[in-house]
């Protein structure tokens, strides 16, 4: 069972539908016990960094997520969910994240239109089973105004170009992040989720 952390607003349904297509059982939850009992965790997310962290803290889930991460349970963060893994975000202030990965989150340079919205290509930064059977430069759907920086170079699996390098897929041990929305990236996105599922099973 996959525990999808339901900490607030946004379109989580599409993610569930995508997992349904892959015959992956999932549950929307904020219950620490359900999260502990799950096989893997997905931290979705749209919206503001601070609101999301506040919600996670108010629900008492920050500790649970950190413990499960430390215990080695696979955790996938999508979009804002990936950004929450990092130490800090400078989105309208300076906020502390979950600190599961080293790095921070900053606004995309306004030399390009912000938000970064639409289909952009992923360039492989290193070989990784997540990219199995996928050619270089596949298109996936991005919607975000902030991006991860100062990350550990070795964790970068794939990136895109938008006002500079934008980390698109990161992975360190059991922690995986996707800045784009695999559940909204057509067949490529479904394939990425499938690869992820095979990788952690």
């Amino acid at each position: 069972m996959i525990a999808i952390i339901d900490y607030g607003a946004g379109n989580i349904k599409s993610l569930q539908f995508a997992l349904d297509k892959l015959n992956k059982e999932s549950v929307l939850t904020t219950d620490p016990q359900v999260i502990r009992d799950s096989d893997s965790i997905i931290l979705p997310g749209v919206g503001a960094f601070k609101d999301a962290m506040d919600a996670i803290n108010d629900l008492g889930l920050a500790g649970v997520l950190k413990q499960e991460a430390a215990a080695g349970k696979p955790i996938l963060g999508i979009c804002l969910g990936m950004q929450l893994f990092y130490e800090r975000s400078y989105e309208d202030g300076d906020w502390e994240g979950l600190g599961l990965l080293k790095g921070n989150v900053r606004k995309i340079k306004d030399t390009v239109k912000v938000p970064h919205m639409g289909w952009n290509t992923i360039t492989k930064n290193k070989e990784n089973p997540l990219m199995n059977d996928l050619p270089d430069d596949v298109y996936v759907y991005f919607v975000h105004s902030y991006a991860v920086g100062s990350l550990e170079e070795d964790s970068l699996v794939g990136s895109t170009q938008y006002g500079g390098v934008v980390p698109a897929i990161v992975q360190q041990g059991n922690i995986t992040g996707m800045q784009f929305h695999p559940e909204k990236s057509g067949d490529i996105g479904i394939k990425l989720l499938k690869n992820y599922g095979e990788m952690i099973s």
Partner: peptide, 8 residues
Amino acid sequence: ALKFGSQC
């Protein structure tokens, strides 16, 4: 925008 994010 504050509640759901500008992107939507």
